[in-house]
Structures are given as structure tokens and as C-alpha cells.
């Protein structure tokens, strides 16, 4: 395993341990203020998990609202509802074997489902056939995209976060030594028409994946935000095939994928688009909660006479 993967794993497991340890402290600590500060560790570790998932806006929202708002409220409530001059505030709990047993069962059930279900990772691929050369059967090609380090498939027309995409071509019925060449085109809007121009190329050797199929992957990283199209072709010692595009070709054709930096932009347009009504409703609800909380927490005023 390359050292980068090891680093990523170390960071992930460190933050997962922080989250678990904090969660256990919240659940069993005998001091309620320590529970509250353990919640801080959990919230930050969960924020780090959003970082691993490349959800930068959610990371920031988590820290801003949970740590800056909810946690401060909780600590305030702890201090307002206890005689706080004593540092060691007790926090009774009634652990019973039934509770522990039930929770463990639930955990194992959830974990078993998560680990045993075969989550769909690949995106739909495009099939194409390259016309045969003299005396050879036609080659069937399968083109597919994954994002980042190849963990998640990208659907045609989908988005790629942080400009790292891996394009793959699988050739069936192709014998002998060969290599694939990938071409990436970037779209620029000129007079309300997308103009496509070659942006980068990459080469990769074919590897045998299963009998009769050979697979090559080309990766492109640090792509600036914008729409892209890509195509592939096979080159061997006898010559080369024509370019096979992933999507439709031509001047007005749509992008195969769009590269975006972080989630901020798409979340912003979603709020102003399909999620406009929920967004407004939530703002009304927040106002109602604000008024309600102020009403509940106010001091009772007893009028004389």
C-alpha cells in the first residue's frame, strides 16, 4: 500500500477513535460537565469525517452551529440547572444489563447490515464498438468514470469534487500488447454556445481484469472547475483505433462531467432552486423556535392587584 493511503487510514482511524471515545464519555461519564466537553470532541471528530467525505460546507456548518451554538447552549443549561460551585457534578445513570445488551445487539445488527450489503459503487458505463480491422473481430469497449481515488463512480453528467477523476476503458476481445490514450476536453461558454477544446491527455497500459477483458485507467487531477468531456482510443503495434467518446459528440453536446471545488456552490444553488420552499419553512420555524424559547425561559411576572 502506498504511504499516502497509510496516512489517510491513520488519520481516519485517529478521528474515529476520538469520536468513539467522546461518545463513550458522553454516555458513561459520571460528571455531566465532562460529558458536555466530551461532546465537543465528538462534534469535531464528526466534522473531520465530513472532511474525509469532501463535504467542506457541511464541515463548516457542523462546527459553526453545533459547537458555536448548540454546545454552548447545552453547557449553559448545565450550569443554570445545577448548584455549580461544586466542580464534581454528579450525573446519575441507571445502566442495566438489559440496556447494554439491547444496545450491543442493535450495534451488531446495524454493523452487519452495513458490512454485508453490497453497496453499489460503480456508475453506469457506456458501451461502444470499435469497427474491426482487417481479419480481426470488432472490439467492444466499455467506458466508465470514477471520482477521486476511484472509490465512487460518476454518473454521466454528474459532478466531480475537487478536480480529480479517473477514466477507465475496458476492452473485450482485444489480444496482445496495447495501451489506451485518454483525451480530456474542457468546455468554455462563448456566445451562449459551449466550445470544446482539448485540455489534457493521458496514457495507460492495459491490464487483464478477467479472462477476455483488459482494462486501462487514466487519471486526471487538479482540474479547474468547469465542464469536461472525454474520449479514449486504443493503440497497439498495428496502429490505433478511432476516438471513442464517453458521451455524445458535437457542438451542442452536454458535458460528461462537471468539476467543482467543494460543495458550497451546488448547495447554494440547491437552496435557491429545488429546496427554496423547505429553506423558507425552516427560517419560519427557526423564528418560531426563537420566540417560543424566549417565552418559555422568561421570568414569570406576577402583577400586583
Amino acid at each position: 500500500m502506498p504511504i499516502q493511503e497509510i496516512l489517510l487510514n491513520i488519520f481516519f482511524y485517529a478521528f474515529a477513535l476520538v469520536a468513539l471515545g467522546g461518545g463513550i464519555a458522553v454516555a458513561v461519564s459520571r460528571n455531566i460537565v465532562r460529558s458536555a466537553f466530551a461532546l465537543l470532541a465528538v462534534l469535531f471528530a464528526v466534522a473531520a469525517m465530513y472532511g474525509f467525505m469532501r463535504a467542506d460546507f457541511i464541515l463548516v456548518a457542523q462546527v459553526l452551529i453545533y459547537v458555536g451554538g448548540i454546545l454552548v447552549l447545552i453547557i449553559f443549561a448545565v450550569m443554570l440547572t445545577h448548584k455549580i460551585t461544586d466542580v464534581r457534578l454528579s450525573n446519575e445513570s441507571a445502566p442495566g444489563p438489559a440496556a447494554i445488551f439491547a444496545c450491543l445487539c442493535l450495534f451488531f445488527a446495524l454493523a452487519a447490515v452495513a458490512l454485508s450489503y453490497r453497496w453499489e459503487r460503480a456508475a453506469p458505463s457506456r458501451e461502444a464498438t470499435v469497427p474491426s480491422r482487417e481479419g480481426q473481430p470488432p472490439i467492444r469497449l466499455e467506458l466508465s468514470m470514477t471520482q477521486g481515488d476511484g472509490r465512487t463512480g460518476v454518473t454521466p453528467g454528474g459532478t466531480v469534487l475537487d478536480g480529480f477523476v479517473r477514466c477507465a476503458v475496458a476492452a473485450r476481445g482485444q489480444g496482445g500488447e496495447a495501451q489506451a490514450r485518454f483525451r480530456l476536453e474542457r468546455g468554455v461558454l462563448k456566445e451562449s454556445v459551449w466550445q470544446w477544446s482539448e485540455f489534457r491527455t493521458a496514457e495507460a497500459r492495459f491490464r487483464a481484469a478477467e479472462p477476455g477483458t483488459r482494462r486501462a485507467e487514466g487519471s486526471f487531477d487538479r482540474l479547474p472547475p468547469g465542464p469536461y468531456r472525454w474520449s479514449a482510443r486504443i493503440e497497439d503495434f498495428e496502429g490505433e483505433t478511432a476516438w471513442v467518446a464517453f458521451g455524445s459528440q458535437g457542438e451542442g453536446a452536454a458535458a460528461d462531467f462537471v468539476s467543482e471545488r467543494g460543495l458550497t456552490k451546488s448547495i447554494g444553488s440547491a437552496f435557491m432552486g429545488p429546496y427554496l420552499l423547505p429553506f423558507e419553512l425552516v427560517s419560519v420555524l427557526l423564528l418560531a423556535a426563537l420566540v417560543g424559547a424566549a417565552y418559555l425561559a422568561r421570568k414569570e411576572v406576577h402583577r400586583q392587584g
Binding site: 458522553v26 445513570s93 442495566g96 444496545c103 450495534f107 446495524l110 454493523a111
Partner: peptide, 20 residues
């Protein structure tokens, strides 16, 4: 991530059930 979130969920549930 699913296993981690299952663990957090169960810990939260345990807190809700046992705390007074």
C-alpha cells in the same frame, strides 16, 4: 463510516435510555 455512525447512534441511544 456506516459502522462508525452505527456506533455513535447506539451510544446516543444508550445515553437517552439510561440517563436521568
Amino acid at each position: 463510516l456506516l459502522v462508525l455512525s452505527a456506533a455513535l447512534f447506539v451510544l446516543g441511544l444508550y445515553t437517552i435510555v439510561t440517563r436521568k
